[in-house]
Amino acid sequence: MIILGIETSCDETAAALVRDDRVILADVVLSQLDEHRPYGGVVPEIAARAHLDHIDRLVAEAFRRAGLELQAVDAVAATCGPGLIGGVIVGAMTGKAIAAVTGKPFIAVNHLEGHALTARLTHGLEFPYLLLLVSGGHCQLLEVRGVGDYARLGSTIDDAAGEAFDKVAKMLGLGYPGGPAVQKAAERGDAARFSLPRPLKGKPGCDFSFSGLKNAVRLLIQEQENLSAQDRCDVAAAFQLAVADSIAGRSAKALRAFAARHGGARSLVVAGGVAANSLLRQRLGRLAAEEGFTLVAPPLALCTDNAAMIAWAGLERFRLGQSDGLDFAPRPRWPLDPAAPRLPGAGVKA
């Protein structure tokens, strides 16, 4: 079984071909980083335009790299949400058009389910497991019980973790994207020089918050007269440590809750672009070991947005007999756990 995957929900335009024996036959990703960098963040209209400019060419390139004809695929999977809707629509329509012409089934994939199931593509992981999804658009802890079966244990109530990195990097003049920029500055900084809050510390539940931390950084910067290069590095280090502490602290509670419910199953999967942060990985590795869990981190290229995970999520659904109509409406918000309450401060992120 071979599935074509299409991803256009944020600032990566991507196409991939994946086979049911967990082999990625082609995985093509075009980053729009250079288009968005001058603005210090992803501009939805610029993203949507760039997706349309490139997606058909990238799909063709995926087939070329795999050495496959179009008829070799069994179904077409495209991200249909959540995400920047102008971009989501481009990928969804491309997928629907290819499905219509080839007569192959169409699978509308939830982008978050792509992240959630990646560890099954890369590690062959069995259900259930605990997922920490930390990216520019999301920050969630999810119990992954099966395909289409998720329980949200926690979510950001305001900003996503990657968003906080971007905003702090902007305040410090470190450039975009913020994650790598903050990490690089933090390497030369003293995290102990400034004291920053650990959001929601001691509060019940596993939700996250980064908005207050971001404001604390803003105030800290305002307090400094002439921010020196060393000051910037020290602030970056203090911020990065606060984020890692906060995520690890909230994850610890989720691990215990998960262990109480699932006994023998002991895997913590981390996904999303922020999973690239080495301090966070280190903290999560230590935490998992302390709690008797194994930390499963897919390779970075499959942690950030890509189409292989969309093809794989489509494949998992397709082999359960699921597919969608060509009238499927792309969705800006599409929670994996529909029973979890809306968090107004998080907008479409939860």
């Binding site: 949507a48 349309l52 491309t94 058009a97 290819i98 012409v101």
Partner: peptide, 19 residues
Amino acid sequence: SFTGLRIALATARGMAFAA
């Protein structure tokens, strides 16, 4: 409408590729 144009053009380009 920018969105409308992209709906039709992504469809046309996807069909052009596939057919």
